[in-house]
Design a binder for these strands. Structure first.
Lengths: 326, 326
DNA sequence: TAGCAAACTGTTATCGCTAACATAAACTAG
DNA sequence: CTAGTTTATGTTAGCGATAACAGTTTGCTA
């Protein structure tokens, strides 16, 4: 920067301004500065920039897992909004642990992020306290809450669970099971929605619930189908907490020659790309995770500009996708 | 830091050392320093640290796409190695464009990364030049090359394509088609492998190739199956350039009541989790993308420590997974 | 045309930390 | 017991940029 300044016959602050606040510098000087910068192969130093008080252009993004497509698509949405605005994501993986989240937060604050994007609203009390003390804005993704002063973008996982259970009831199923793995807060909220719907219809039976803490996957879905049918062979529909499990169950039904939906209905959650193509195609809840990412990033950008968003919470909803499996 | 130093009755450099080079500070002082740091809620400032010459602890990772599970799993591997060592990933998405890659490189260098992880070896000449001029080490992922001074971790995409075509020939198929989308360099290398194998068997026929530049997906796989069978109805096997397309084709075959592999064999590439579960299960090439991520990160760490790795290139290979679809 | 505001550029003082060198104390060898 | 070495800490001087304030010039109004 000093070199450019010397060659262009200006002070370094003018070079700085030519790049960061171009309208404060006359066009002539600006072009002169840019010419010399080009010639010298100048690469601005964001680290120095951040130390001197400019925004670091870093945004911390904490997600539970990087191998779960749902969060990856959310990441893609965030990236598509932040990248054109010059922001970098610092991605942290909490492995579904609030404690790990707290640790990551601690570490990432060292990078002077301009803002934070966290998954979910189930943080440790100490995490909440720290977040409130920060001057950096935070947006919580994938769920909604009424907690005051908390910005979030998501949808009601409970309502999603309720809607699917309601759909199964509407289709005439009466012995509806719920199967879940990777029991994170969102999964549990879906379970609560399911329970409420079945209780409302006076058809709830805890023996038709199968919850395991292991990570979910297609093969886990196949396993859990077998396990559930062994324990509760009379059920006529199974609501899986996500499409991975449901797809695994569908494949296993094909192998076991269980006719879906005739003998057994299968439903999932999330609407992954393959879910419309399986045989039978999978009834599921389509969730707007890419949009959650985009909207969260946009909300954060609003906050970073110091503006007050019109509302603190965006409920992006979900939609029931009725297909052949129910 | 100055506050801690004052309270602990030492100079700031000693505080710095207590954190960064603990063995240079007596245990007594160290505990005194840590106690006060804790009490004050001290959060180190990595930005200042990087400006003063310490490593920035940032590693730039450029991948073509964030919605392709192959690259995401590679990312996961990188993350699993770098995170425990305190490094952050700055993730850039090139959208399969070398030009965009060059631009991203330019931008990310502003963050003073300690090292770079790039996907593939097809960079612009200007990108290669710039990389060679950098003092930061670079590792190229997913492919291998003999280019001198170039570190890479991957496997031969050509050999993968060849191996699958060879497998189909061995199974007795004689009219083997190749279908690809998203024509990136790795896909084209697989195509070359396929061609070579068929030419070696004197069975190559360009009319059985269908290459489209659009992104690949399950539904694209279904489309391309229809398209190929319309143009070349006599083929007895189709080698899809990846499992997404192959899965889409399998689903479409089920719908069209085309018996796989009796009437038509289907093969893919990558071995995605679902590929072992489809009906019929999918013959494919299992690629070590998670391991490529891990090994690349490890190689980079070696270089970051200033050590010379034993070899510049790691060929992690691949394996043919023979299943029901062929 | 005085008087003042707006537009542009410059000066100075950091931001928080660490490299490099300097010093002091403790140890070692012959 | 001296001289050289090691170990532990301190001093000084930046790293490369920007904020805040200070000039200087230009333009406009009455």
């Amino acid at each position: 920067m000093a070199d450019i300044a010397r060659l262009a016959g200006v002070s370094t602050i003018t070079v700085s301004r030519a790049f960061k606040k171009p309208d404060l510098v006359t066009e002539e000087l600006r072009t002169r500065i840019f010419t010399h910068a080009e010639k010298l192969g100048y690469v601005p130093n964001r680290v120095a920039s951040a130390l001197a008080g400019a925004p670091s252009m870093n945004v911390v993004v904490l997600i539970p897992s990087m191998t779960n497509m749902v969060f990856v698509e959310m990441l893609a949405g965030i990236h598509d909004v932040l990248h054109p605005r010059g922001y970098q994501m610092l991605i942290g993986v909490t492995r579904y642990s609030p404690l790990e989240e707290e640790r990551l937060l601690q570490t990432y604050l060292e990078f002077l992020p301009d803002g934070l994007l966290l998954t979910g609203i189930d943080h440790l009390p100490s995490t909440w306290n720290r977040l409130e003390a920060l001057r950096q804005p935070t947006v919580h993704m994938m769920e909604t809450t009424d907690r005051p002063g908390c910005y979030c973008v998501g949808f009601s996982q409970f309502d999603g669970g309720y809607a699917m259970a309601r759909h199964l009831l509407d289709q005439g199923y009466r012995r509806i099971a719920f199967v879940a793995a990777q029991l994170d807060p969102r999964t549990l909220a879906r379970a609560d929605g399911y329970r409420q719907a079945l209780r409302d219809a006076d058809l709830y039976d805890p023996r038709r619930e199968l919850l395991v803490p292991e990570p979910s996957s297609i093969s886990m879905g196949a396993n859990l189908l077998d396990q559930l049918l062994a324990e509760a062979p009379d059920c006529d529909a199974i609501f899986f907490c996500n499409d991975d499990l449901a797809q695994g169950a569908l494949f296993q039904c094909q192998r076991r020659k269980i006719e879906v939906p005739k003998q057994l209905a299968i439903a999932g959650f999330n609407d992954l790309p393959a879910s419309g193509w399986t045989l039978p195609s999978l009834t599921t809840i389509a969730t707007p995770r890419y949009q959650v990412g985009r909207q969260s990033a946009n909300l954060l950008l609003t906050l970073l500009e110091g503006k007050q968003p019109t509302v603190p919470t965006y409920d992006l909803g979900f939609s029931l996708v009725t297909r052949e499996s129910t």
